Simulated assay, not measured.
Amino acid sequence: MKSLKCAAFTDALIPVEVESTFVRGLPGFNIVGLAGATIKESESRVKAALMSLNFKFPASKIIINLSPSDTPKNGSHFDLAIALLIALQKERIDGDFFVFGELGLDGSLKSTASLFSILLFLSTKVKRAKILVPQSIALKACTIPNYDVYAVDSLSDAVRFFLDEEFAASRLMRETHPLFKNVVEIDGQAYVPNRDFSLDFKDVKGQKRAKRASLIAACGMHNILFEGSPGCGKSMCAKRIARILPPQSLGEVLLSCAYESLNNKDVDFSALRPFRSPHHTSTRSSIFGGGSSGAKIGEVALANGGELFFDELPHFGKQILESLREPLEDNRILISRVNS
């Protein structure tokens, strides 16, 4: 039996050990361990990718187990770990690796929308881990502390990675993301200054008191309420506050990107703090998070560390306005649903 490691989101993120064995019996391919529909579909992707390498399946029954077996799991990022355990069944795998990646039918390796958030939250649970990821996300992944990141482009490269030590050493990522090449050191902490001023306060004519109030709110990360006649510049000021907020630390940039990926978006790092502006017709679950089948992140969490702008505040529903009390007082939001 051989094993590699992966990770999955359940009620919280858990490391998952992917185990494989070949047993005597009719040829078959079974994945056990409460695997979701996305993982079950990986059987076809893995078979096609291995056949692109001219791999000959043995006349045995292949069993893949995802441990712990009593926890539901989902995600196409298990593809690479499953394929490697089949391809390298007769080989010795040295080292303790976390392996992530979705396979194309031609053996190419792809990232997934939620992979960066998985990597970030996993770094808080494991110490000095070695991870093998697709090349497309490697530059982002190597900015996460606590990781040795190795990058490959395809399944054939991943197989070679475990067979050729020199090739494996050459795949270690040592590059720095362009955003973090010009950081500002303040009291030993690295900050990323924002240089995007496409929205500038110089566009707001007059309104000196409003602009000074915006400056004070931005410096101290305070709440601010604008009141005035239509067209006097309330929205203009609010949309420009995000540009003058204090610079983000390295950890804040990583966390902001992770929250966006939890929203099923593949985003890159940005020095600009988040700016969210939900419409007054938005539902409570879209603003605070939730959902019928499973909990999803909402606008309040997506705006974490940045600006949440409620335009035409009185038009928002009473239930939404009253629900704002919890995040305003406790600086946190709790989402509780039947399934998660």
Rank of each mutant, 00 (worst) to 15 (best):
G206T: 06
Q207M: 09
Q207T: 02
Q207L: 07
Q207S: 03
R209N: 08
A210C: 07
A210L: 06
K211H: 00
K211E: 03
R212V: 13
A213Q: 05
A213S: 07
S214R: 03
S214G: 12
L215R: 13
I216T: 06
I216M: 02
A217V: 00
A218I: 11
A218T: 01
A218L: 10
G220Y: 15
G220N: 13
G220L: 09
G220D: 14
G220H: 09
G220F: 10
G220V: 14
M221L: 15
N223Y: 15
I224Q: 07
L225D: 10
L225E: 09
E227S: 15
G228A: 05
S229C: 12
S229G: 13
S229Q: 15
P230W: 09
C232E: 02
G233I: 00
G233A: 02
K234Y: 10
M236Q: 05
C237L: 09
R240N: 09
I241F: 01
I241Y: 01
A242W: 01
L245C: 12
P246I: 03
P247M: 12
P247Y: 11
Q248N: 10
L250W: 08
L250M: 15
L250V: 14
E252L: 06
L254F: 11
L255V: 07
L255A: 06
S256G: 13
S256D: 08
C257R: 04
C257P: 05
C257V: 02
C257T: 05
A258H: 05
Y259R: 13
E260F: 06
E260V: 00
E260M: 04
L262C: 05
L262H: 01
N264G: 02
N264F: 08
N264V: 11
N264M: 02
K265L: 12
K265G: 01
D266H: 15
V267W: 00
F269T: 11
F269R: 05
S270M: 04
A271C: 08
A271Q: 07
L272D: 09
P274N: 06
P274Q: 04
